[in-house]
Amino acid sequence: MGIPKAILFDLDDTLIAFDSVSDPAWEKCCRDLVREHSLPADPSLLFDELKKTRTWYWGDGARHKRRRENLTEARREIVLLTLPALGIGGRDLALELADRYSAYKENLIRLLPHTYETLSELKKRGYRLGLVTNGASEVQREKLRRFGLEPFFDAVLIDTEVGFSKPDKRIFEHAMELLGLAAGDVWMVGDNPVWDIEPPMALGIYSVLFRGGRDGPTAEEAVHPDRIIGDLSELLPELPCRTCL
């Protein structure tokens, strides 16, 4: 492991809490809806059924790529598919639940611990930083603006802008091209073993799996990262000041 010249980061659930706040948001919205409308339903059962529908809905690759451009409508579709199976509510109630979830989740999205401090310190030490993320362009760029992350990055690659989506290795190759660096000069940090770790490792990029307090890889995960961290600040001891070398 050499000292890199640049570090690539994933965005969602690596720098900001996004997918990781989905379940708490759905659970609260289900409880509130059942209570406020006195629905003859168990909130936990409603949540479980929504999770099943959500897993099925996003499990279709073509639909995932198409519908992520409008998450509000996708969430409405998921709820509209779920409620009739439970025999509760109609279209208006389904839309209320979906839109309530969208609004509540937006309030839960936040920077993960030590994100700003770690990126700031890496820039001070002379490292170039890149972002490689999947998602709708407007949504991802709004997150960067909202949390003041844009100035940190020398290159921002959003799959809907560049035409390649993780886990396609070409998006990482494009990142290296933009930075003018070879694989041996770059690290990648991300939370998804299949999307963020396996492709760059295949290219020879040193890859760090960010777990953010979660357990390490399960027995089902065949991907073996070069390193696992639970906090972004754990990167700093391994990365000396480049301008001082």
Rank of each mutant, 00 (worst) to 15 (best):
A41Y: 00
T118G: 10
M176N: 01
D23E: 05
L108K: 05
D191P: 05
L112G: 15
G59Y: 04
W187Y: 15
C30Q: 04
G212R: 10
S120K: 13
V189N: 07
R68H: 12
Y116M: 14
G61H: 08
P40R: 02
L203T: 01
D60P: 01
L111P: 11
R68V: 15
D215M: 05
A155F: 03
D10A: 11
K105T: 10
L179R: 05
W58I: 09
V186A: 10
E198Q: 02
G2D: 06
L81A: 13
L144M: 12
D99H: 06
I109G: 07
P240G: 06
R170N: 11
D42S: 13
G180P: 04
T218R: 06
F18R: 13
K143P: 08
R227P: 00
G59Q: 04
R76H: 08
A175L: 03
G87H: 01
L236T: 12
G213Q: 07
S102F: 03
L236G: 12
K124I: 10
L112Q: 14
V223W: 05
K5E: 08
D12Q: 12
I158W: 01
S137H: 13
S233W: 07
G90Q: 02
L203D: 01
R125P: 11
L144H: 09
L149M: 13
A183K: 03
T218G: 14
E238K: 10
L178Q: 11
A155E: 07
D168M: 00
R214C: 10
D12S: 11
R242M: 09
L203E: 00
E142D: 15
D48S: 15
P113I: 12
E221D: 15
A155G: 05
H224K: 10
D19C: 05
K169N: 03
L45D: 04
L93P: 01
G59A: 04
G126R: 01
L86C: 03
P4V: 01
M188R: 06
R170I: 07
T218H: 03
R66S: 10
A85K: 09
N107M: 13
E73A: 10
